[in-house]
Each structure stands twice: as structure tokens, then as C-alpha cells.
């Protein structure tokens, strides 16, 4: 089961996590947006209020769904692995998958589905190439625990960790173009040292990608 669930850690709209803010920055005002794994709806609410988007959400946790609907957001209970197939192709301008890809059963299929139903996909994930992760394995010989990878191996929903390089490679295989990317460093700030290449794969704790299918440029 894909744990398409996240908590915003922010009490008010307009006061959201840096990675969510980076995602919001990639969304065109007035567009149609589907947030897969929208949690308590913090990002959707931010987008609806600040960017006037037509905001929809899918969330696996019933508590999150009920909280979203009670906030007036159009959210349904569902699972990234099974419920994207119900949507028609090209139904959204942006489909967002934040901190969820690594928890899906079949990340490759989910990625393709995101770009079938959306003209763009915005995907964020914890980077397994982050230096602290590498060091933890090398030095301690233990599975890493960081801010972005916060649960021990025996109870994490994350089953498909990847590095930024791995992800870029998969995008290449699937004919997906990376239009833009940001990294978030260990301090939760937008990464200053290079958004691409070796440095990002080493220094980024998390990464945010704006994707589209090859051959269809522009929004």
C-alpha cells in the first residue's frame, strides 16, 4: 500500500514547509492541479488561496481526507498506486506527488500515470544519495535516519528509495524531460550549491522535480 499521506507541519496557510513552497513556485496561477497524497491539504489550500488554482487532492488517510473536505477542499480518499487510472488523460495541468514516490508499490507506473493525467508532474522525494545517508551506511553500517528519512527500517512505508541520479536516469528511460529542479539541503533551505550534478546528489537532502513528457514543451 502506498502511503500517500503527509502532514504539513504548518498551522496556517501561507506558512508552509520549504519543499511545499518550492512546489507551489512551479505551479502556474489559475491552472488545474491534482495533489496526490495531499495530507491535511496545506499545499492545496495555499495554492487555492495564493494562485487561484482549481485544486483537487487524493489522500490515503481518512483523517486527512475528512480534514481537507471540512476545509472546503475537493479531496477524495484514494491510493496513488490504484486510483490514478480512473482519471482521463490530460485532465490536469499539474499533478503533484510530494514525498510519496518512494512509498508507492510501483514508482515507475505511478510516474507514467502522473504524466498521463497531467501535462506536468511535480515530484519531490528524499535523496538517498545525501551525504549523511551515505556516511551512516559507510561509517555506522546502519540504515540511515535523517530529517527526511525519519522512521526506522522496520516501520517505514518507504520501500523504493532512490538517489537523484537514479531518478534522473529513470526519467531518461521513460522519455520524461526534467524542466526544472531544486534541492533542499539539510537545514530545510533551498539548496545553494548546484541543483544538478554530483553536488546536488551529495548535498541535497530532498529534491523537487518539474517534469513533462518528451515532445510536449511549454505549459
Amino acid at each position: 500500500m502506498a502511503a500517500t499521506s503527509r502532514s504539513s507541519g504548518a498551522a496556517r496557510a501561507g506558512d508552509i514547509r520549504v519543499d511545499l513552497l518550492l512546489i507551489a513556485g512551479m505551479v502556474t496561477p489559475g491552472s488545474r492541479v491534482l495533489d496526490v497524497g495531499c495530507g491535511d491539504g496545506a499545499l492545496l489550500e495555499y495554492l487555492a488561496k495564493n494562485k487561484a488554482v482549481d485544486a483537487r487532492g487524493i489522500e490515503i488517510g481518512q483523517d486527512g481526507v475528512n480534514a481537507c473536505v471540512a476545509r472546503g477542499l475537493a479531496v477524495i480518499q484514494g491510493d496513488a498506486d490504484t486510483d490514478l487510472r480512473n482519471y482521463p488523460s490530460g485532465a490536469f495541468d499539474f499533478v503533484i506527488l510530494s514525498q510519496t514516490l518512494q512509498a508507492t508499490r510501483n514508482p515507475r507506473e505511478v510516474l507514467l500515470e502522473l504524466l498521463r493525467i497531467g501535462r506536468h508532474a511535480i515530484v519531490s522525494f528524499p535523496n538517498f544519495g545525501y551525504w549523511k545517508v551515505r556516511l551512516s551506511l559507510l561509517w555506522h553500517g546502519r540504515m540511515p535516519l535523517t530529517a527526511a528519512i525519519s522512521q526506522p527500517w522496520f516501520e517505514t512505508p518507504n520501500s523504493h528509495f532512490c538517489t537523484i541520479k537514479d531518478f534522473v536516469s529513470l526519467c531518461g528511460d521513460l522519455g520524461i524531460t526534467v524542466e526544472n529542479r531544486f534541492s533542499v539541503d539539510g537545514y530545510g533551505q533551498k539548496g545553494l550549491l548546484g541543483s544538478s550534478g554530483l553536488f546536488a546528489n551529495l548535498l541535497a537532502e530532498q529534491s523537487v522535480f518539474l517534469l513533462r513528457k518528451n515532445g510536449k514543451p511549454g505549459a
Binding site: 481518512q62 481526507v65 475528512n66 481537507c68 477524495i76 480518499q77 486510483d83 480512473n86
Partner: peptide
Amino acid sequence: IVHALNAVAANVSFVEIE
């Protein structure tokens, strides 16, 4: 019902109450 509404990209919320 929700799946049918998704198939036409309708604006839909769905809540199951415990």
C-alpha cells in the same frame, strides 16, 4: 460514483465516515 466522477475529471470530494 467517485470513480465515475473522476473519469470525467469532475470536482469531487469523498469522505467515508467511521
